[in-house]
Design a protein around this nucleic acid. Sequence first.
DNA 1: CATGAATGAGGGTTCATTCAT
DNA 2: GATGAATGAACCCTCATTCAT
Lengths: 200, 200, 200, 200
Amino acid sequence: MQVLKDEVRANILSAAKKLFYEKGYNNASIRGIAKNSGITVGNVYRYFENKESVLEGVVSPVYEKIMDYIALSESYIKAGESKTFEDFRNEINHYMLQITKEFRLELLILFKGTQGTRFENIRNELISLIENRMYEGLFKRVNMEDNEAVFFSKTVARSFLDSLIMVIAETDDNSKLKKMIYRLNDFYFNHLNSRFEPED
Amino acid sequence: MQVLKDEVRANILSAAKKLFYEKGYNNASIRGIAKNSGITVGNVYRYFENKESVLEGVVSPVYEKIMDYIALSESYIKAGESKTFEDFRNEINHYMLQITKEFRLELLILFKGTQGTRFENIRNELISLIENRMYEGLFKRVNMEDNEAVFFSKTVARSFLDSLIMVIAETDDNSKLKKMIYRLNDFYFNHLNSRFEPED
Amino acid sequence: MQVLKDEVRANILSAAKKLFYEKGYNNASIRGIAKNSGITVGNVYRYFENKESVLEGVVSPVYEKIMDYIALSESYIKAGESKTFEDFRNEINHYMLQITKEFRLELLILFKGTQGTRFENIRNELISLIENRMYEGLFKRVNMEDNEAVFFSKTVARSFLDSLIMVIAETDDNSKLKKMIYRLNDFYFNHLNSRFEPED
Amino acid sequence: MQVLKDEVRANILSAAKKLFYEKGYNNASIRGIAKNSGITVGNVYRYFENKESVLEGVVSPVYEKIMDYIALSESYIKAGESKTFEDFRNEINHYMLQITKEFRLELLILFKGTQGTRFENIRNELISLIENRMYEGLFKRVNMEDNEAVFFSKTVARSFLDSLIMVIAETDDNSKLKKMIYRLNDFYFNHLNSRFEPED
DNA sequence: CATGAATGAGGGTTCATTCAT
DNA sequence: GATGAATGAACCCTCATTCAT
């Protein structure tokens, strides 16, 4: 039975997605991916140059989306269309939700299972974006020294993103997920100023 | 040139610490550790029974401390000495700070690089502890459905702990670190109730 | 140059047979087997799960045959079909001869070179079988104390089996082998009673 | 505490004897021998050139005795003092018993635990001696073709010797041992001629 | 296009032997 | 004389990658 090229490729990616998610990139083997794709080891290499390329195949849709989003978001800034941070976080929440609907596993692999690969970076880039927005939109105005605000923006940005990812990882019901993301936002950003004021 | 036993052991642990931190336990090799220690592979096995023992050598000081802390903290609960959550968080902040002063890298390895080893669940145990305290001391009282509160406690507990770890990972100046930890606590816990109230 | 799978497998088994025979299981190495098979170490593991599996591949045909024989022979006993010892020894001689025709070296490996593996006790099981038959069919009736008879049965059983194996090991001419086995039987069992009577 | 050279040497040999007996030569380690001797690994090499020398040290007393015996026995033959086979077997039984009293473990190591070493041979040499005597004293006269007699002598010689060794290995009570050796002799040699005569 | 056998480098580990102290 | 740390070669085994078919 002749199998169309695209279908084989899709099978490989599907098997790889499953295994990368379950075991992480390093502990998933090409053998296992081939077996789960119903093809042979050698044939994997007709579709992908090497193991890292398979990872790229799995993860690049999300990767591209996120890179696009980052680029778009940065272009806004350069254009001076400075939205409020609230706009921004609505935007990013919305975005992550969209991506999750389509690419839940890929997203989790990208953020949690790519240690030691060149995809480690994307998490940092996204964090960097959020961090800048947080600084400009939130922490610069807060009762805090500037260098602290910078560092704090970074920390909270990471923490916020990781929380998002955690919630996504543990929630497969999308309506529940949406609710939890709202909660997270409330938790992270409501009444921010007053948190850093001296208590009564 | 003959080297004293303790020095060699220290060299091995030092090299292992570096490599475990950079690559994680699984991707660090005994051969690499040996090379970085300036000794041969076989000699590593004079000092450590096997690879997992090397990890243990690196990580067990922190591991023990944290286990002790968890046990102590749980004994308080059983004894009915229910402190406020504020007491608890002061306690854990203090504790993590103490550990960090002595064992910064070790802590990071323990929490991020011990996948697949017997050390991997200490992070979850600590999260579990924090989570319970958060639920009892914070989220149960908040304007939120109970099952949400449970899930949220877990999410925030993880996020808080990871934030702590992140801050620790990136701050080697201890006075700055202390300040950042206060900030984190303000950020995470001040005015919690009002965050979940309907906005004006 | 590509080789057919079965041929490679056969090569491995052949090389392993040679080396296990010459050095015993423990002192034969996978490297050596690979080299003697004209392939690489890694490739051995495409055909056999591990070293013990290679041994199994070499030895299991004989192993199974002997296990079958033991089971069969014991089932006779349980069924109460008590044959004479002479029947029994004709049977076992016949059996060993058959096996030897097909699996001479394998038999020798099984009985002499499997120390520390799961195959090592088949020799003892077979000895145990022979021993019981000898006791019941021969030495119980002889002019000898019972505990001596028990011990002696064991000793002679071993000795007889080892003699068989020795003869097999050194004789590749099957007709000569047959004759020698008859001789062995005469030597071991003819006029048994009179041997233990006080001499004139 | 200063230890005399001879005592250390004796300790090494004693430990080695124990371990070679329990595990065989290959599976006993120099480390283990050193530990059981109460000295260090390196020091073993001041007393013995290498591992095989340690084996030699353990085994050579028996080795020498047996070689002497072989030489003596062969000198008798050359001198034409042809004793009967019965004399010979009394002699060798006596001899083995003597050796066993002093060197039971060493004997068993020599005959069963030296696979792959240069001491494998001694068993064959002793067999060769017995074999010649058996041929001259027994089987040449028996109703058997000559080439058969030759081969048979060898087989029975081995078998007899191994039986002796087995009995020695399993009997630590010397009086019982003596009795069993008599039994063995009866079994092996009494009424030999009649065994090969056509049965009635 | 596809196969899957084969490679080769690397993984953890052991141990006889050497040598600076 | 004695120590025991250190060496280095070998062990079994795995896996990403290649290549003859």
